[in-house]
């Protein structure tokens, strides 16, 4: 089956519906599926629940979908960089489910691996653990009992992902810290759409160096990325 599409609009055609759950890759603005986010804005699909570590910034990344009020609920670990997000949240227009970062990543990985739930120490005894099943395991250094809470896998209707390179079968290679949430997000989507900087001919990616096998990938587009930097931080050459 042909996986390569010409544009982000075409790649999303026929798979969007209001109220759907979307898992998005990216950390801050690094490795975000910026072309697919733009296409979602254009599509007008609404009442979205979006599982993404962050919510973009005002005017870029998921911030665009917030401005158009297409998002009903965010599942995130950190949303501190977005004033419009805060405004909507404090006005009660937007739901927010905080997930510890590792819990969010594992919930995606688990959902994509057919695991409906798992126990983690993270969040036990905090607001995050409230209302969740607690189980004790003898995992302390000397076998002492430790408390774990039940977290559920995320089974997303759609995953939107950014990778560096793909072949036409969907085998993906990521670049540096732009990998972040992209592989677990990709895994947990019933349909996974990936945007890449370059689609390369079959056989040119080393099979031993594939970061995510094409079985997780259903649709691919190639495009130009802005790749905005959130916080440019440098040192002067005199320091060296």
């Amino acid at each position: 089956m042909k996986k390569v599409f010409a544009t982000a609009d075409e790649a999303l055609d026929g798979i969007l519906h209001d109220g759907m759950l979307i898992a998005a890759g990216g950390f801050g603005l690094c490795g975000i599926p910026e072309l697919l986010i733009d296409a979602l804005v254009k599509s007008g699909v609404k009442d979205l629940t979006v599982a993404s570590n962050n919510a973009g910034v005002d005017g870029f990344g998921l911030g665009k979908l917030l401005e158009t009020k297409q998002i009903k609920k965010m599942m995130s670990s950190y949303v501190g960089e977005n004033a419009e997000f805060m405004r909507q949240y404090l006005a009660g227009e937007l739901e927010l489910e905080f997930n510890p970062q590792g819990t969010l990543a594992e919930r995606m990985r688990a959902g994509g691996s057919g695991i409906a739930g798992f126990y983690t120490k993270t969040g036990y005894g905090t607001q995050i653990g409230e209302g969740k099943e607690v189980k004790v395991f003898p995992t302390g250094p000397q076998g002492q009992p430790e408390h774990y809470i039940l977290e559920e896998g995320i089974f997303a209707d759609l995953a939107i992902v950014k990778a560096w390179k793909a072949d036409d079968t969907g085998n993906l290679v990521f670049r540096k810290t732009a990998r972040n949430f992209n592989p677990p997000a990709a895994m947990c989507g019933k349909i996974c759409v990936v945007e890449v900087e370059e689609i390369v001919p079959r056989g040119t990616l080393d099979p031993d160096h594939i970061h995510l096998p094409g079985i997780f990938v259903h649709r691919i587009i190639q495009g130009e990325h802005e790749k905005r930097i959130e916080k440019v931080t440098t040192r002067s050459r005199e320091d060296a």
Partner: peptide
């Protein structure tokens, strides 16, 4: 209201 990021996982 910014969020815990990875802090809860780290301390756990």
């Amino acid at each position: 209201i910014k969020g815990m990021g990875g802090a809860m996982d780290l301390v756990a």
